[in-house]
Design a protein around this nucleic acid. Structure first.
Length: 359
DNA sequence: ATTGAAGTACACG
DNA sequence: CTAACGCGTGTACTTCAAT
């Protein structure tokens, strides 16, 4: 009998290829073969936002997600720049997720275009025959890809592994329109040459710190003991030690509980003019309060964010004596925090934001 | 000693 | 002139005060 616990799972990660851009391409067939950048308006290179999604044609110019739109414009001014049509992408996402649901009862949606499927039940239905289980998972991935393409004319990439992290890394390695399974006995070989920043949780800052220490790959990073990593990176360091070795016990969760909710706004030009700032901030209050009411939430803690000229960002927060859903209270308290920012800091303001913690 | 609040840093899609 | 850098959400840390 095979042990079926957290230690012996099979997880599938599905990630849509260049999702937003692919939808736009589908909706406008004459865009086919041209570089498409979905994101902020570049306004002749003066726009302030970032790239949400670039299709593979645009990526050939070096354009990628999260890149400042002004840089994307420099790299390829002739690309087709499109605004984010969130409503449309959300509708398509729902259809995709509905398809995914039919392949597993345990699905975790992590964004509009990504989901994890826990296929561990296959161990039961296939009498614990490991070969069969992994083969069946591949078949499911192929069927998923085919079904999504048939129904939505969009391609996806699937990764399969013994946990979420490995499934995701497998998926990343197979993009676009790919399928990759990493078996438990293949994990070590596969991980060894990976750049450290491919490990979830190691971002730009942590990656830079590791490179200073002469670490480039996952293999290099394994020279550090768990204690050393804890010294360097705290609690994250301990998790990192495990992840470098392909260990990840994170369960596939059906739905996450919302813990906080907020809105923010970046001005077209940095400003200290109350006539520009106040109405925008009032709108944030309206939207946050509206969402709180719609969801039937209450809040007790309020945080206001201010990003000043030069990108310096600060927060101010208050905690109320009791939870409430009252918009007046939100406006009153949030406005006090905002005014403190304006009186304490003479710099022009780039962004204002408002966030509440759900009680 | 523990808890909660305020503020900062970092990560991810 | 090597900087340009949205938005929404989560976790973890440090510091300080009150319990």
């Amino acid at each position: 009998m095979v042990n079926v616990t957290m230690k012996n799972r099979i997880i599938l990660h599905l990630d849509m290829d260049a999702f937003f851009a692919a939808i736009e391409e589908r909706e406008n067939p004459h865009f086919k073969g041209k570089p498409i950048v979905v994101g902020a308006d570049p306004r002749k290179g003066q726009g302030r936002g970032v790239v949400s999604t670039a299709n593979y044609e645009a990526r050939k110019f070096g354009i990628h997600s999260a890149m400042p739109i002004s840089k994307a414009y420099q790299l390829c001014p002739t690309a087709i720049f499109l605004p984010v049509n969130a409503e449309l992408y959300s509708q398509v996402s729902k259809k995709i997720m509905n398809i995914i649901q039919t392949y597993s009862p345990l699905v975790e949606q992590t964004s509009l275009d990504e989901a994890y499927l826990d296929l561990t039940q296959l161990y039961h239905t296939l009498k614990y025959d490991r070969e069969e289980v992994w083969e069946r998972a591949r078949v499911i991935a192929k069927e998923l890809k085919r079904k999504i393409f048939e129904e939505e004319r969009l391609t996806a990439t699937c990764g399969i592994g013994p946990n979420k992290m490995i499934a995701k890394i497998a998926c990343e390695s197979a993009k676009p329109d790919g399928l990759k399974a990493i078996l438990p006995e293949e994990v070590e070989k596969f991980f060894e040459p990976l750049d450290i920043e491919e490990i979830p949780g190691i971002g730009e800052k942590t990656g830079a710190m590791l490179r200073v220490k002469g670490v480039q790959t996952v293999g290099d990073a394994k020279q550090f003991s768990k204690e050393e990593l804890r010294q360097l990176f705290g609690k994250n360091g301990e998790a990192m030690y495990e992840r470098l070795r392909g260990i990840d016990e994170e369960p596939v969760i059906k739905e996450r509980v919302i813990k906080s909710l907020g809105k923010e706004h970046t001005f077209e030009k940095d400003t200290r003019d109350p006539a520009s700032i106040i109405p925008v901030f009032e709108d944030l209050v309206e939207e946050v309060a509206g969402e709180i009411q719609r969801e039937g939430f209450a809040f007790r803690s309020i945080t206001v964010v201010c990003r000043f000229h030069g990108f310096e960002t600060h927060t101010k927060a208050v905690t109320l004596s009791a939870a409430t859903a009252d918009k007046k209270v939100l406006r009153q308290e949030a406005m006090k925090l905002l005014l403190r920012f304006i009186t304490e800091n003479p710099k022009p303001i780039r962004l204002v934001g408002l966030r509440v913690k759900i009680a």
